[in-house]
């Protein structure tokens, strides 16, 4: 109970300073290690989200409808959730610096399932790609969260110097996934490490 209160409290504070800013079509730094070219149809959530400066959340129509998560580096022992790092009681997978690409993809998929609190997730078309000029991975997924809205997603990333650089996107299958997919593909293709 106390934990929940604290969580509500921290979000209350957070909500007070959360706002959105436009993203110009120029290179955007995600922490020190990653940069992507912005897409004006997306908006960046500002204010401190969790404790990692190198974690950004973008949306075009609202987070319920499309959410893009950009990680400028997840290091050894860290998880996909900046909040969970502080209080990891959710058995989130922990990133290992020596992961290969398949293990990194596995880490991402398992983390999304765990964060979504659902068994209904399926990854498809897991393949190697060049991400930011490095050997990387990409996969698509379909997930049903507790609101029972079926969502599709894309994840792409690479491991460099023991850190995972990652972009993942999810949106309801109906209308919203396809609507922003081209912009998301451009963002992923523009990644530089």
């Amino acid at each position: 109970m106390k934990a929940i209160r604290a969580a509500i409290l921290s979000l209350g504070l957070l909500a007070g300073c959360t706002a959105y800013e436009a993203i110009p079509g120029q290179p955007q730094a995600i922490g020190n290690g990653l940069s992507v070219v912005g897409e004006p149809e997306f908006n960046r959530r500002t204010g401190a989200i969790g404790r990692r400066a190198e974690f950004q959340q973008w949306t075009a129509d609202g987070f319920e409808l499309n959410a893009l998560h950009l990680y400028g580096g997840i290091g050894e022992g860290e998880t996909l959730s900046p909040v969970a790092d502080r209080d990891n009681r959710r058995e989130l997978p922990v990133f290992r610096a020596n992961s290969n690409l398949a293990e990194a993809a596995e880490f991402v998929q398992a983390s999304i399932a765990k964060l979504g609190g659902t068994a209904l997730i399926e990854a498809r078309d897991i393949r190697p790609i060049a991400f930011g000029g490095r050997d990387g991975f990409r996969f698509e997924f379909r997930i049903t969260l507790k609101d029972e809205v079926e969502r599709d997603g894309i994840a792409a990333g690479a491991v460099a110097s023991g850190r995972l650089y990652l972009i993942f996107y999810h949106a309801p299958r109906q209308h919203y996934f396809e609507r922003r997919k081209p912009a998301v593909e451009r963002i992923i293709a523009s990644a530089r490490l």
């Binding site: 969580a7 509500i8 921290s10 979000l11 989200i49 969790g50 959340q57 987070f63 319920e64 959410a67 998560h69 996909l80 959730s81 900046p82 909040v83 969970a84 959710r90 983390s111 999304i112 964060l115 979504g116 609190g117 969260l145 609101d147 999810h170």
Partner: peptide
Amino acid sequence: AVAASVLTL
């Protein structure tokens, strides 16, 4: 939302 802030639903 806090716990799953990454999915932010």
